[in-house]
């Protein structure tokens, strides 16, 4: 069997070193295989970005101090890497695309300067031609002219494609995408996802795709992990999770998404709101909002694999088929 590219075991991230400090992530475990795209889906504050940043050790010193558990990148523990090893991995082996492309671009440098720098680091020769080819690969029209442009002269969709071109310059094995399409129009999101799927195939890379949008997960991911209040509550192959979600949170969330295909009289809703860090309920964190909750749910629920690869943490899994909207 192939080894996972990325293997996270019992990752807990607290706000500070104190063992009682509130946790942002709570014993998160996941595996990512080479070439695989894993969707990390959850509502605001569930800890998705913190998880993505942990992989590259980009969290603030306070969170870094409160981090326990293992993050194995190709078998090596990221937590134990030297600054030099870490620099090599960032960019060369793992790249990241963020929601706001401006955060990754230097506003006072032309696109060409930034792209050539990324290509130079990856040891490419003939940088101008390579830069033009890189822009063409992300479907930027008249790339030669665009190399002279500055980030603010481009649309949001174009900037996101340029960030991808820079991120891919060093041919990484893993691309972490943190809500790269959330700020884009649906039409531009659609095209960007198509582009990412093509790039993923061309570069043979794995992706960790962070989003709060189940439509995006359905479109681009092989597997999905659903997060709630700092935990992965359910994970499995995309087809399986959408057809037979078994965790009450996943089921309720999927049911509450409006669809263009039908209009129910009312949307099935989850009452209340996601808990804030430091205020998370004990046991199953979803219990105050869960329609299936019992007293048992005040204790940490067991983990079960109900079908191959389909794992969930719940006292009362709901084994009824879901009707995708």
């Amino acid at each position: 069997m192939t080894e996972p590219l990325l293997s996270i075991r019992d990752l807990t991230v607290r706000v500070g070193k104190h063992p009682e400090a509130p946790s942002i992530l709570d014993r998160v475990s996941l595996d990512l295989m080479p070439g695989e795209t894993l969707g990390l889906v959850g509502e605001s504050g569930s800890g998705k970005s913190t998880l993505g940043m942990s992989v590259l050790r980009l969290n603030s010193p306070r969170l870094a101090a409160g981090t326990t558990g293992q993050i194995l990148w190709q078998g090596r523990d990221v937590q134990k890497m030297s600054a030099r090893q870490l620099r090599r991995i960032r960019g060369e082996e793992i790249s990241m695309i963020l929601q706001d492309p401006m955060a990754s671009l230097n506003p006072v440098q032309s696109i060409g300067v930034q792209l050539r720098e990324a290509l130079r680091r990856s040891g490419k020769r003939n940088l101008s031609a390579a830069a033009e080819a890189a822009l063409a690969e992300v479907n930027i029209p008249s790339p030669a002219d665009r190399l002279r442009a500055y980030p603010h002269q481009m649309s949001g969709g174009m900037r996101q494609r340029i960030v991808s071109a820079i991120g891919l310059a060093q041919d990484p094995n893993l691309l972490i995408c943190d809500e790269p399409t959330t700020a884009l129009d649906a039409t531009i999101q659609y095209q960007f996802l198509e582009l990412l799927a093509a790039l993923r195939a061309a570069h043979d890379m794995a992706m960790l795709f962070i989003t709060h949008d189940f439509g995006v997960v359905a479109r681009i991911c092989d597997r999905v992990a659903v997060m709630y209040a700092g935990r992965i509550v359910e994970t499995g192959p995309v087809a399986e999770i959408f057809a037979r979600p078994a965790h009450p949170y996943t089921r309720a969330l999927l049911a509450s998404v409006p669809s263009t295909r039908h209009a129910p009289r009312r949307l099935p809703v989850i009452e209340g709101q996601p808990p804030a860090v430091g205020n998370r309920p004990r046991g199953c964190p979803f219990h105050p909002r869960c329609a299936a909750a019992t007293d048992q749910c005040q204790s940490v629920p067991p983990r079960a694999e109900i079908r191959p690869g389909h794992v969930l943490d719940c006292w009362h899994p709901q084994e009824i088929a879901h009707d995708p909207a």
């Binding site: 969709g157 649906a186 531009i188 659609y190 359905a218 479109r219 959408f242 995708p324 909207a325």
Partner: peptide
Amino acid sequence: LLAAALPADPAAPATDTPPMGEL
């Protein structure tokens, strides 16, 4: 626009009218 409104359904059929280009 309709094709771009991605359904939460991995089995949804591919569209014949994908959105193209920018505004």
